[in-house]
Amino acid sequence: MKIKLAAISMAAVLSTAAWAQAPVVSVGSSGSVNDRLAELERAFNARSQAQIDQQRQLNALQQEVSELRGLLEEQSYRLEQVVERQRSLLAAQQDAAAQQQAPAASAGRGTAEQDAAASGGGKASAPAGGDEQAAYDNAVNLVLQDKDYDAAIPAFARFITQYPQSTYVPNAHYWLGQLLYAQQRFDQAKAQFTRVVEAYQTSNKRADSILKLGVIAKEQGDNNLARQYFEQVLSEYGSSSAARLAQEYLGGL
């Protein structure tokens, strides 16, 4: 009996040892799990690469949009300058036509009295002297004919200093502000436009000067102040071309 029990015990031990030594792969499931893990890893890597590619495309599109926006702003600025020059030329042509239609008795007064009627505050003024007229015409011609803007700036500044009582002074301040603005000397340009707005209430350049103050405020990032100037143009000069431009600027704020 003891021998039989010992044999049974030995068989049990051998069976247990054989079970413990059996390889795990014999179940047949480990290989498929590894394959699935590898497949999941490949899918994850592919998705990550796709996200990276999409992000690169998005960055490229954002860069293109930024460049297009900058180009649009530049074109808008240039168009504004063209419109401004056309308005100035039209005003000069209207002045010339008015002079030709004036009675012969008033022909000798030249263009000074006509400019005064448009911008001089409603007071009768003496015609400009020869030197005064020549100085103003020279400064204007530097802008309209010679396109020598660097030389026009000191020319207008000298005119204002030499002829402070001239009926052309409001226009000279306005021209000087325009030239300084074109050179992005915004603070100096603002001083010239402010002078027109505050000192020459009936000047035909006042509406445009208020508009330019709004444009400068916008350029300097003060949209609240810009809005105040544009709304002032609409309130005081609602039917003017300056008001139409002010409305467009308000729409862009």
Score class of each variant (00 low, 15 high):
97 A>C: 03
224 N>A: 13
94 Q>V: 13
19 W>G: 08
22 A>P: 01
8 I>F: 04
142 L>Y: 10
18 A>E: 05
145 Q>I: 12
179 L>S: 05
5 L>N: 06
75 Q>Y: 01
28 G>M: 04
160 I>P: 10
249 Y>I: 00
196 V>Y: 04
17 A>G: 09
53 D>A: 15
244 R>E: 11
219 E>L: 01
74 E>M: 03
36 R>H: 10
253 L>V: 14
95 D>F: 05
49 Q>A: 15
24 V>K: 08
239 S>N: 11
29 S>I: 10
109 R>M: 06
71 L>I: 04
112 A>I: 02
180 L>V: 03
119 S>N: 10
109 R>V: 03
224 N>Y: 03
225 L>V: 08
54 Q>Y: 06
232 Q>S: 14
173 H>I: 08
74 E>G: 02
163 Y>E: 11
106 S>A: 13
241 S>G: 09
251 G>H: 06
164 P>L: 15
76 S>C: 01
132 E>V: 06
174 Y>P: 02
175 W>D: 01
1 M>Y: 05
217 A>C: 10
110 G>D: 09
238 G>F: 01
119 S>M: 04
58 L>S: 00
80 E>M: 07
2 K>R: 09
81 Q>S: 00
21 Q>G: 03
116 A>E: 03
107 A>C: 07
18 A>W: 09
208 D>Q: 13
124 A>V: 14
212 K>T: 13
178 Q>L: 11
68 L>V: 10
205 K>W: 04
15 S>K: 07
48 S>C: 08
186 F>N: 11
